[in-house]
Amino acid sequence: MKTRIFEIFTSIEGEGILYGTKTLFVRLAGCPYSCFYCDTLDALPLDSGKEYSITEACNLIDTSLQDNTYKVNFTGGEPLIQYEAVYELAKHVKARGLPTYLESACFDSKKFLYVLPSIDFVKIEFKTIDSEFIDKKHYPNLIRNTLECLQASIEAKKTTYIKTVISSKTELSSFKELLEQIFKIVSKENISGFIIQPTTSISEPPLEQLLEFYDSVYPYYDEVRVVPQLHKIISAP
Rank of each mutant, 00 (worst) to 15 (best):
C31Y: 10
I124F: 06
V165Q: 01
T10N: 15
E155F: 02
V224Q: 06
Y214V: 01
H138S: 15
L89W: 10
L44I: 11
E51V: 14
E171R: 06
L116G: 05
S168F: 03
I196C: 00
S201C: 05
G97A: 13
L80F: 14
A85P: 00
S64A: 15
T200V: 08
F36G: 11
P140W: 04
P32G: 12
S109I: 14
P117G: 15
L230C: 06
Y161M: 03
F74A: 02
F126K: 12
D39R: 09
K94H: 03
S216N: 10
V93W: 07
G77S: 12
T40C: 14
K127F: 01
S187D: 12
K22Q: 06
P32L: 08
Y214D: 00
K22N: 02
S203R: 10
S118V: 07
G20V: 03
R4F: 11
E103M: 04
K188W: 02
F107A: 04
F213I: 00
L89K: 11
D120Q: 10
Y87G: 01
L172N: 06
V86D: 02
S131P: 13
P237S: 03
S235L: 11
R27N: 08
R96Y: 07
T199C: 02
D130L: 12
I134S: 06
D47K: 11
Q151M: 11
E204C: 02
L41T: 11
P228R: 04
S131Q: 13
E212D: 13
P140L: 05
D42T: 11
K169R: 12
D130P: 13
I8H: 04
L211M: 08
D120W: 02
Y52V: 08
V217N: 00
E223V: 10
L44E: 11
P237E: 02
S168K: 03
Y33A: 03
Y87N: 05
T200R: 09
S153I: 04
G76I: 01
P32T: 13
T146E: 12
Y37S: 04
T23Q: 07
E223A: 15
C35N: 12
V86A: 12
L102W: 08
I233N: 03
K163C: 03
E7S: 14
I134K: 08
A90T: 11
L116D: 03
P205T: 01
L150Q: 12
S173P: 01
T159D: 06
S118G: 15
L102T: 07
S174H: 07
